[in-house]
Simulated scan of single mutants.
Amino acid sequence: MNENLEACLYAFMEYIQIERNYSEYTVKFYRQDIEHFYLFMNEQGITELGNVEYFDARLYLTTLFEKEYSRPSLARKISSLRSFYKFLMREQIVKENPFVFLSQAKRQLKIPKFFYEEEMEKLFQACEGDSALDVRNLALLEILYATGIRVSECASIQLKDINLEFDTILVRGKGKKERIVLFGDFANKALCNYIDHSRHKLMKNKDNHEYLFVNFRGTPLTERGIRYILNDLINKAALTGKMHPHMLRHTFATHLLNHGADLRTVQELLGHENLSSTQIYTHVTKEHLRKTYLSHHPRA
């Protein structure tokens, strides 16, 4: 590293430590990011910070992509260099900031995994059977898919929370907030069959309790127990991978939006406090539309 580059780095480190009062952890990463860029400058034969142009900044970003840096790491490096050059301009060491017009690498949006409608049919088929456990599993799957409730919310449902006349369930969500969720005819039929014919068989004269879903011992079904059942259904349906606890919740929201439901309604049904939490599902539905278009349009 030549003396000029080293002096600029030292001055910037002093600035962010003393004037900006950045933490030791933040200062460490600023130094690493700038030193990494210095290596790139050396590879490109650039000896002065003032000689770095927008094209060089773009080339540096491209090399980071090629080396498969994560999106958050890319964003941090570009942000560090933008701040560094802003400081250099303030000190009149350089005239321009080549990173100011460089689009910051946005954090990669993780699109929720969900089941397609054909996959849901296979899961329901995997519940077919007359045993008490089969009947319970069908009711469990129908309720999770019909309501979009969390696994934790499902495990806490009690018989008194269910209104079979109006097809509603009183759910206790995060922060002990209560909301009413709806379910349809398929879930109603499965639930009635389970309550009338199977739940008491599984209870096996255990101390009577009000929890809706029970395990083979007759005790309340836990979140872990529900996840085990769902993963077992995955295997029976010959679907790949494991079922994340939220996949049926994601599926519920995605299918509603795909069939024309508005975002506000889905927000209320999911129990989201902020609409921004629900908006991620619009990315799922857009991706679904894109794939459908590419698969079916003759000029796609």
Rank of each mutant, 00 (worst) to 15 (best):
P98Y: 11
I78P: 05
S131C: 07
F84L: 11
Y85P: 00
G148H: 07
R76H: 12
A75M: 03
R107M: 10
I143L: 15
Q125F: 09
I78C: 04
R76A: 05
F84D: 13
F115L: 11
G148P: 03
E117P: 00
A126F: 02
S103R: 06
F65Q: 10
R107Y: 09
N97R: 04
R90G: 12
I111F: 06
F87K: 05
F87T: 01
G129H: 13
Y145R: 00
Y145P: 12
S131K: 13
L64D: 01
I93N: 07
D130F: 10
Q125W: 06
K77L: 08
P72A: 10
D130R: 14
N97V: 00
V135A: 14
D130K: 14
E142V: 02
A146V: 00
S80G: 08
S70Q: 13
A146H: 02
E117R: 12
G129M: 11
P112Q: 15
A105F: 01
S152N: 12
E66G: 09
E121N: 11
L88D: 13
D130L: 09
T147M: 02
A132T: 06
L74V: 04
L81N: 01
F124N: 00
E96Q: 08
K95H: 15
I78T: 10
R107C: 04
M120D: 05
L123P: 05
P98S: 06
L144T: 05
L74Q: 03
C154S: 09
P112T: 15
A132K: 09
